[in-house]
Design a protein around this nucleic acid. Structure first.
Ligand code: ZN
Ligand code: ZN
Ligand code: ZN
Ligand code: ZN
Lengths: 144, 144
DNA sequence: GTTGACCTTAGACCTAACTCTAAGGTTTAT
DNA sequence: ATAAACCTTAGAGTTAGGTCTAAGGTCAAC
């Protein structure tokens, strides 16, 4: 039986975070001392590690809640349910990547167009491009 | 002189958002009616469009504040300052992309390992992989 | 028998960029 | 003159995942 600080040390999740997860239904201490101290079993440790691994894999706490409910009763759940959650998450991640890559593209074009030098910004093509708006996708290069 | 709803229609930024931007120092109405209604000039419209374009390019409102202060006095600012802001943003975006690609990788490996079928999850290799933790990067395939 | 490390709770605070509400004043058209 | 459609403000709420504080109770050591 571990106290919260011991579970914290074992998992790398802070005691605050562990209580936060408990409040959100992810990890509940199996037992309490008379004074109300949380006590965690080995099964709790495994559960906490599952949560941490899932979190590091990109799952939201809500996803993790679903995964945990599958975990405690695997007979009543199918591989398909598991892949559904995973695929949804992958789609989400892919969407965010696409969005960021579009920004990356824009920023690289902007950077490429500007001389980056010490002279004043009256001729700066980044400023011009932001002035022009979306219409023109490719900024003109600065002419010295 | 445009009223806020007219500027909103012209820029696609909601009146709420325009007031929010004003509160954060980005776009201030050049004038007010006697009753306190905001009135925007053509210069305000251009400024609002600049903000919108910068936002769509991925800049934070704080970044945009810096870009705007360069914009109003280009003689006192250099191309280098502009590229500094842009490069910092690009680094940030690249960092986020890398993080997401790592999640993408993990999720794809997980998905690849699981049969995704209707049978129960007692043999599910996604669940196993989340159980195992970080140590083993490649999940074993499910054997039917 | 008291110091110090640990634990408890409820609840406030954080970031970012909105988004909305309440409660009221203004304008315009009928 | 009254209803609809606009505008104002301050301030609360949203999302996600924590992070921290206050005010106090508990436990082990010296
Ligand atoms: Zn230049
Ligand atoms: Zn430049
Ligand atoms: Zn399977
Ligand atoms: Zn499976």
């Amino acid at each position: 039986m571990l106290k919260i600080s011991e579970l914290s040390a074992r998992t790398g999740l802070s005691a605050h975070t562990l209580r936060f997860y408990e409040k959100h239904g992810l990890i509940t201490a199996s037992d309490r001392s008379e004074a109300g101290y949380r006590f965690y079993t080995d099964a709790d440790v495994r559960r906490a590690e599952f949560v941490k691994t899932a979190r590091n894999s990109g799952f939201s706490l809500e996803d993790i809640g679903q995964l945990l409910s599958i975990r405690v009763d695997k007979l009543s759940h199918s591989c398909q349910e598991v892949t559904d959650i995973t695929r949804l998450k992958l789609d989400e991640v892919n969407g965010k990547i696409a969005e960021l890559q579009s920004m990356q593209q824009t920023l690289m074009i902007l950077l490429d167009s500007c001389c980056g030098g010490p002279e004043n910004a009256t001729h700066c093509s980044i400023m011009e491009a932001l002035e022009e708006g979306e219409s023109r996708k490719n900024a003109g290069r600065e002419t010295s």
